[in-house]
């Protein structure tokens, strides 16, 4: 079982990102789950979303998760959210920030000694999609760090997942995914 927790602000697309990832993974015959914690909070509120991936049918519906990957798509959440909750010794962190990995760890000591990767999904999405929607670039970074799928396969499936969007936006998303794949460190 592979378990992923997203930290995001409502409106940044973590639920869409988690569902998109689940959709892509499902095409490879694996079993998936994508869900989120909801309240009545509006745009901008800190929230979490989740993925489970397994070769077996996933029966577990508990919300509790000890994640293998923690994806933080809003830079400020590493200072205000409990993003290391229930971490495992080998939990991997991929964090959106304009800082280098070293600078980030220096600013947030909780990350010391952890497997930490950084990528500026906000900047990438602003420069490609034209809006701060850091969910799809984060998936590009995840592909690089996890080695989950070949980039061509992933992008081909993401085009299908995003098919209701205008072609221009789909193209921009593909560039964003590739840039995050290339830039994550």
């Amino acid at each position: 079982m592979l378990e992923i927790r997203w930290h995001s602000r409502a409106g940044q697309g973590a639920v869409t990102g988690a569902k998109g990832l689940a959709d892509v993974v499902s095409t490879t015959g694996k079993h998936v789950q994508a869900f989120a914690f909801y309240g009545s909070a509006k745009r901008g509120a800190a929230m979490t979303a989740y993925n489970r991936v397994d070769d077996q049918v996933i029966m577990n519906h508990e919300k509790f998760m000890a994640p293998d990957y923690v994806l933080v798509i809003d830079p400020a959440l590493v200072y205000v959210a409990d993003f290391t909750a229930f971490e495992k010794p080998d939990t991997v962190y991929i964090i959106t920030t304009h800082m280098s990995t070293e600078e980030l760890i220096a600013s947030q000591p909780k990350l010391q000694g952890k497997k930490v990767y950084t990528v500026d999904c906000i900047k990438i999405s602003q420069e490609t999609i034209g809006k701060a929607i850091p969910n799809t670039p984060m998936l590009g970074a995840l592909m690089k760090v996890s080695g989950m799928y070949e980039m061509d396969f992933f992008k081909e499936n993401m085009i299908r997942v995003l098919k209701k969007l205008p072609q221009k936006i789909i193209d921009a998303n593909m560039i964003a995914i590739q840039r995050a794949y290339d830039e994550v460190k």
């Binding site: 988690a18 569902k19 689940a22 959709d23 499902s26 079993h31 998936v32 789950q33 994508a34 869900f35 989120a36 909801y38 996933i58 519906h61 919300k63």
Partner: peptide, 12 residues
């Protein structure tokens, strides 16, 4: 179906 746990949880 269970609110959120099923209604908002994507699965195959």
């Amino acid at each position: 179906q269970d609110g959120f746990m099923t209604s908002h949880t994507a699965q195959g």
